[in-house]
Every structure is written in C-alpha cells, then in structure tokens.
C-alpha cells in the first residue's frame, strides 16, 4: 500500500496558509496515484509529530511543501517526524539538489522516503511558467512579456536565492519570455524597483512562496506599488511607472504544484502509472478552444 504524506508549514493565524496543501492533496487523491494521501503541518493539525501515525501504508513518501532546502527541511521536519539517523548529508545536496533519503521513522517503526522540497525540483520551473499563464489567462504568454521571479532573499537562508536563480536560469534558457529576472524582498535587486529592471512593458511577477499570506498579500503588493494599502486591493495588471505588472500571487497556489509533489515521490521510487500526465492535463490553462 503506497502512501503520500505532504508536509507543510501551516499557520495559527491565516487559513490560506494550508489551503494549497489541501488543494494539491485533493488533486493527487483524485488522480488515484496513491492508496492514501495525508497532510501534516508544523503549525496545524495533524502536527508533523503525529501525522505518520495516521498513515496505514507501508510504502511511504514524505514530500515537504517548502520552497527551499534549509532549516525546516533539514532540521525541523526530520526531527519532528523522528527520522532515525537523519543527517543532512543523506541528501548529498549542493543546496538545490536534494532528492530523497530512506530512513526509519521511529514513530511508526517503518521506513519512509523523505524527499527534497518541491521548490527545488526541476518541474517547479514549469509551475512558475504555468502561473504566468494563469494570471494572464494566456497559455502562450511569453512574447512581449518579462518574467520576474521573486523570493524572500538570503537573509535567513542562502539556499533560498539559489532555488530562485536556478528556476530563473532554466526558464531563461527556454527563450520564451523576452526577459527573466530575479528580485528579492530583503536584498538587491529589490522587488520595490521592479520597473527599473525590465524593458518590457508587461511583466509577470511570480513570488516563489508556497502559500498566500503576509508576504504575498501585503508586503509585495505595497512594496512594488500595486497599491498604497493592501486592504484597498489592486488590479491585474496594474501599471507602475511605465510597466504593466501582472501580479500572480504565491506560485504554490497554482494547481500544477500537485505535479511537482508527484514528481518528487516518483523520483523517490513511487509507482505512479499515468498520474503525472493526468495531473498535468487536468491542471492546465484552458486554450479557449
């Protein structure tokens, strides 16, 4: 029996924090790829500490719904899941290349496949592009558009910027958007100065965050100048100086994120049949045909 456990941060204050986790879990359940799909959280219930005891299967894949490798994926989650003998060297990662480690979870005395975070998987580049398609409602968006991939920055975690640069590079290589740039909230180049960094009239701004919350709903819209006060709301697109900014909100809310979760599990050995193809199809932007 094959089980998927999606682990995420969650929030004591904001119900939107766990909403993407639940949405992607539902998409994957509907795909039939796993016999069971469970969700566990740091700040909600079931807690990371107790989620594994709700799992009935014997082939267990744990996928962290986090953007980068760092404190949570390397320290908090393995500790709370009680992964015996965990050491970050198990992933043998350069900061963005964690794949999986197979360890016994002491809580249930069964092996689990502990996967790298979704945010550093190569398929995440596709989600960023899909997010741009969604917000522009154009499955072919690219020509005449710039793409700004926005992250928190390196203040707390050097790997955070690595992940953002990695995806921006990959998307740039596809030659789809006129320009692709990375911007940050707490370091240069700053998202506040977005128009200065783009020549394109239209720029899609995709924040590399798992869920909508304070940063994506309040900070970034105000910093970029989409609105004076986030409570006033803003249009998509909104013109700032001479740039029309298509603000996408957290990339993690994009339905295609379910695909990255599946790919993480597949890389760790999960048998998914055609679920990946199904999820890619069912989450795509309509062409209007």
């Amino acid at each position: 029996m094959q089980s998927l456990v999606i682990v995420a941060h969650g929030s004591h204050l904001n119900p939107d924090s766990s909403a993407p986790t639940y949405a992607h879990a539902d998409t994957i359940r509907a795909s039939g790829a796993f016999d069971e799909v469970r969700t566990g959280f740091w700040k909600e219930e079931p807690h990371l500490r107790e989620v594994l005891r709700t799992v009935e299967g014997d082939e267990i894949y744990v996928v962290p719904l986090f953007i980068s490798e760092g404190y949570f994926t390397e320290e908090v989650i393995p500790r709370e899941l009680r992964l015996a003998g965990w050491d970050v060297s198990e992933w043998d990662s350069d900061g963005i290349s964690a794949d999986q480690a197979t360890l016994v979870a002491e809580d249930i005395d069964r092996e689990v496949h502990y996967c790298g975070p979704v945010g550093t998987h190569r398929a995440m580049s596709d989600v960023i592009v899909r997010r741009a398609e969604s917000v522009t409602d154009d499955p072919d968006v690219g020509e005449g558009f710039g793409l700004a991939v926005v992250g928190h920055g390196t203040e707390r975690n050097a790997n955070s910027a690595k992940a953002i640069e990695y995806h921006a590079d990959r998307i740039r290589e596809r030659d789809r958007f006129d320009e692709v740039r990375t911007l940050y909230m707490d370091e240069e180049p700053e998202v506040d100065d977005l128009p200065e960094h783009f020549e394109s009239e239209d720029v899609v701004l995709v924040p590399l965050f798992i869920a909508d919350g304070y940063h994506t709903q309040e900070d970034i819209p105000e910093d970029v100048g989409l609105c004076e006060d986030y409570r006033d709301g803003y249009d998509v697109p909104t013109a700032v100086d001479d740039t029309r900014i298509w603000y996408a909100g957290a990339v993690g809310t994009e339905p295609l994120m379910a695909d990255v979760i599946l790919e993480r599990a597949a890389d760790a050995g999960a048998d998914l049949d055609d679920a990946v193809a199904t999820v890619r199809e069912t989450t795509r932007v309509a062409t209007g045909d």
Binding site: E45, P46, H47, E50, V51, R53, T54, D107
Partner: peptide, 21 residues
C-alpha cells in the same frame, strides 16, 4: 473524524493498547 479531529483516533488507539508515547 480525522479531518475534524486529526490524529485523535490514532492516539486514542495507542492509549487503549498501553502504547501512548
């Protein structure tokens, strides 16, 4: 029940078996 009171059944079950950690 799991959605409304997560992990409560699992913990209750362990407790009944004298295995609650």
């Amino acid at each position: 029940v799991e959605a409304i009171y997560p992990a409560t059944v699992a913990n209750w079950h362990r407790e009944r078996g004298g295995r609650l950690d």
